[in-house]
């Protein structure tokens, strides 16, 4: 079993108006087998947390720590984090010119595992995973995300999740921009990866509708760079009914559950 531990994390970014603190002390522990939903209004810092865990250079950690089984994640480069078992399904996956999906998937798998996958079984695995996510077989020959629709990009993120088998998956608003059918397909993919075992999930979302398909054991509500409230699945149900308004009214002073 693995543990991803975030302690009193403070993160800021450079803006034209100067340095701005986005995360103001986040503490969170995720263990393999667990699913945590991180919810909150826009601008509350949810995506900053996701990008900071993955190591995006835009975000500067000013204090606090992130450790994976005691190893200092913040000391690792972006690729080292991925090889250590962290996976970020991105909110806006970029198009990478010149690299086919096939080439990309094989190269990444090789990097993560430390050796090249056996060609025959790998090809079969990719094909099956694509079929399950209803990704057209042609996509294998297309450049990474190039010309893919928003929904297709999200499916391809989940494809990678299933193929790379990380210890921890961070899904950054994977549900945004998906229609109901795509949402189902994508959720099934996440659930399959979860069922395969040994994965912890951090599900970042603005809306509750993905929680109909992916069931979290823990729900954390982000407001103004901090966890304002946390609880079990029932907290999500309450958010469904009440929205985020009650947190926003007294942002920063909300009572910890």
């Amino acid at each position: 079993m693995s543990t991803l531990e975030i302690k009193d994390l403070h993160v800021s970014i450079e803006t034209e108006q100067g340095v701005k603190e986005i995360l103001k002390g986040v503490t969170l522990t995720v263990k393999t087998g667990e699913t945590h939903a991180i919810m909150g209004p826009n601008g509350s810092g949810k995506s900053t947390l996701a990008s900071t865990i993955a190591g995006h250079p835009r975000y500067t950690v000013t204090s606090g720590s992130i450790t994976l089984d005691g190893e200092d994640v913040l000391a690792m480069s972006v690729d080292e984090r991925a090889r250590a078992g962290l996976f970020l399904a991105m909110q806006y996956p970029v198009e990478v010119p010149g690299v086919t999906m096939t080439n990309f998937l094989r190269t990444a798998k090789t990097a993560i595992d430390g050796n090249a996958p056996a060609i025959r079984s790998w090809t079969k695995e990719v094909k099956e995973a694509m079929a399950q996510l209803r990704i057209d077989a042609d996509f294998a020959q297309r450049n990474v995300n190039e010309g893919f629709s928003g929904g297709e990009k999200k499916r391809v993120e989940i494809l990678q999740l299933e193929l790379f088998k990380p210890k921890f998956a961070i899904l950054d608003e994977t549900d945004s921009g998906l229609d109901v059918d795509a949402l189902k397909v994508v959720s099934e993919g996440v659930n399959r990866a979860h069922a395969a075992g040994n994965m912890g999930t951090l599900l970042i979302t603005h809306y509750t509708r993905i929680l109909r398909y992916i069931k979290p054991e823990f729900v954390h509500v982000f407001v103004d760079g901090k966890i304002a409230e946390q609880g079990g699945p029932e907290l999500a149900d309450r958010l469904e009914e009440e929205g985020y308004d009650r947190y926003l009214a007294g942002a920063g002073t909300a009572v910890q559950a």
Partner: peptide, 9 residues
């Protein structure tokens, strides 16, 4: 960032 986030140096 995208490629490195997939473990590629």
């Amino acid at each position: 960032f995208y490629l490195m986030a997939r473990g590629i140096p």
